[in-house]
Measured scan of single mutants.
Amino acid sequence: MLEGKVKWFNSEKGFGFIEVEGQDDVFVHFSAIQGEGFKTLEEGQAVSFEIVEGNRGPQAANVTKEA
């Protein structure tokens, strides 16, 4: 699992990017966010995740919000 911070997330469109120190930003789709209820992320929020190869390159999977 990697750790990063949410760079930005558009809850209307359901996607955004996660910043990872020393690496390129990683695309995140709302469907990759773990948990119940409305799936969104806040700018600057700490998250842990895995990287998988998507249709358009690397993207986040199994995203969990850090306490």
Rank of each mutant, 00 (worst) to 15 (best):
M1K: 14
M1E: 08
M1Y: 14
M1T: 13
L2N: 09
L2Q: 10
L2W: 12
L2D: 04
E3P: 10
E3T: 15
E3C: 05
E3F: 15
E3H: 15
G4N: 01
G4R: 01
G4S: 03
K5L: 05
K5Y: 07
K5A: 04
K5V: 06
K5M: 05
K5P: 02
V6N: 01
V6T: 06
V6I: 10
V6S: 02
K7C: 06
K7T: 04
K7A: 05
W8M: 05
F9K: 02
F9E: 01
F9I: 03
F9M: 03
N10Q: 08
N10P: 02
N10L: 07
N10S: 13
S11F: 12
S11V: 14
S11N: 12
S11W: 11
S11Q: 14
E12G: 09
E12R: 15
E12D: 13
K13W: 10
K13I: 09
G14W: 02
G14P: 00
G14Q: 03
G14S: 02
G14M: 03
G14A: 03
F15N: 03
F15W: 14
F15Y: 15
F15D: 01
F15I: 08
G16C: 01
G16P: 00
G16T: 00
G16N: 00
G16M: 01
G16S: 00
G16R: 00
F17N: 02
F17M: 07
F17Q: 03
I18A: 02
I18P: 00
E19L: 14
E19H: 14
E19K: 14
V20N: 07
V20H: 08
V20I: 10
V20C: 05
E21W: 14
E21R: 13
E21K: 14
E21H: 15
E21I: 15
E21N: 15
G22K: 08
G22A: 09
Q23D: 09
Q23K: 12
D24S: 13
D24N: 13
D24L: 12
D24H: 14
D24V: 13
D25Y: 06
D25V: 06
D25A: 06
V26F: 06
V26R: 02
F27S: 02
F27P: 03
V28M: 04
V28I: 09
V28L: 06
V28E: 00
H29M: 05
H29F: 11
H29W: 05
H29A: 03
H29N: 04
F30C: 05
F30A: 11
F30I: 08
F30L: 06
F30G: 05
S31T: 15
A32D: 14
A32H: 07
A32G: 12
A32E: 09
I33C: 04
I33D: 01
I33M: 05
I33Q: 02
I33N: 01
Q34S: 12
Q34R: 12
Q34P: 06
Q34G: 11
Q34H: 10
G35I: 09
G35V: 11
G35M: 15
G35L: 07
E36K: 09
E36N: 11
E36F: 07
E36W: 05
E36Y: 06
G37I: 05
G37S: 08
G37C: 05
G37D: 10
F38H: 13
F38W: 13
F38C: 06
K39N: 07
K39W: 06
T40E: 09
T40L: 08
T40N: 09
T40Y: 11
T40F: 12
T40V: 11
L41H: 01
L41G: 02
L41D: 01
L41P: 02
E42G: 11
E42M: 11
E43P: 15
E43N: 13
E43Q: 14
E43G: 14
G44V: 02
Q45N: 09
Q45C: 04
Q45E: 10
Q45M: 12
Q45H: 10
Q45P: 01
Q45R: 07
A46N: 13
A46S: 14
A46H: 15
V47M: 02
V47T: 03
V47D: 00
V47Q: 00
V47Y: 02
S48V: 13
S48R: 13
S48Y: 11
S48A: 12
S48G: 08
F49L: 07
F49C: 03
E50T: 12
E50L: 09
E50S: 08
E50A: 10
E50H: 09
E50R: 04
I51K: 08
I51Y: 07
V52Y: 11
V52K: 11
V52A: 09
V52F: 11
E53L: 13
E53F: 15
E53N: 12
E53P: 13
G54S: 12
G54T: 13
G54H: 09
G54E: 07
G54R: 08
G54K: 09
G54A: 11
G54V: 07
N55H: 12
N55L: 15
R56G: 11
R56C: 05
R56T: 09
R56P: 09
R56S: 12
G57W: 05
G57M: 05
G57Y: 05
P58D: 05
P58T: 11
P58I: 11
Q59N: 06
Q59Y: 10
Q59F: 08
A60D: 00
A60Q: 01
A60W: 01
A60R: 01
A61M: 11
A61S: 11
N62A: 08
N62W: 10
N62R: 11
V63S: 01
V63E: 00
T64E: 08
T64F: 12
T64P: 02
T64D: 07
K65V: 12
K65F: 12
K65D: 05
K65N: 08
K65Y: 14
E66C: 06
A67H: 13
A67Q: 11
A67G: 12
A67F: 12
A67C: 06
